[in-house]
Amino acid sequence: MKSWWYLAVSLISFTLVGCESGSIVPGESPPTVLMSNTTPIPKEANKLLSLSTPCCKSFADLPYRELKLESSFESVMDGSYPTFNFDSGKSFFVALQLPKSNRPLSVEIQSVAAEDRVFAPTVVVLDSNFQPTRTFNSDYFKYKTASMFRPERLEGYLDGVAGFKDETYIVIYSTSDSLVQSTQMIHPAKQFAKGRNLAIPDIPDPFAKHSPLGVLAVYVTPTSIDNREEKAPQQFSKEKEVAADIYINEQIRRAVAEGRIEEAMHLVEDAEANGSTTARKTFIDAVKKQ
């Protein structure tokens, strides 16, 4: 019967451990694997949205937070987040300033889903004057099932933004249209069955209601030369691309003229990562002139 005493002692210990790690300290960085059911249920979140007063009059006034290259940015959106009257309706938002880089950026955006709710992101990219350059609509972000390292989520990559193009900010928000929609998930029991080679149970999949609040994770990487052809479907203005080409070619010529050959070579690589077809010839011509 001593077995039962051991069990009782263990139970008490577990209870103590449970109390300790169950508390959440405000201001601490969120855990790596985030769950969106830490945010209010959609009904409450909608109420918070309708009661909120927009923080700002224009994109220029938004509180931008700085993104760093290859460093996770995580945001657990709650009722204290600011709102803004977008053309598509009032919405909570996360406003971010892209890191400076000569290389175009790939911006990975994940919106973590709970079984019953998810924030459906729409992303507008702004130039240095806070003018929109392009918009990634919520259907650009696709549902992905949970895996070893990642929770269930809506996920999308904004490829080829910034670099030599004048793209400085992104604003992540949701539209009134997407708020009345939902995302069909795959039932966790089915995911488990697939992962373990079991017969998949014939049951309906849950739908996650789109909520005005959610949990976002953003990760920015510079584009390497090898995958420069991987452009986002949203095309950047051709006119602005030509302008960027002229600018960088001027920089290359000046660097060569001033004897900064190595720097000029780096600029050629950066320009090519940005899609330039004239930078290399500009460099060679400049060297020949010396």
């Binding site: 990975e108 992905k144 070893m148 990642r150 697939k194 992962g195 990760y219 090898d226 995958n227």
Partner: peptide, 22 residues
Amino acid sequence: KNNKRVFAIAPLATAVAASLFT
């Protein structure tokens, strides 16, 4: 095409993440 991008961005995590259903 897809494969290449996956490995360029996040060598381990994304590669594994891509496995289920996609």
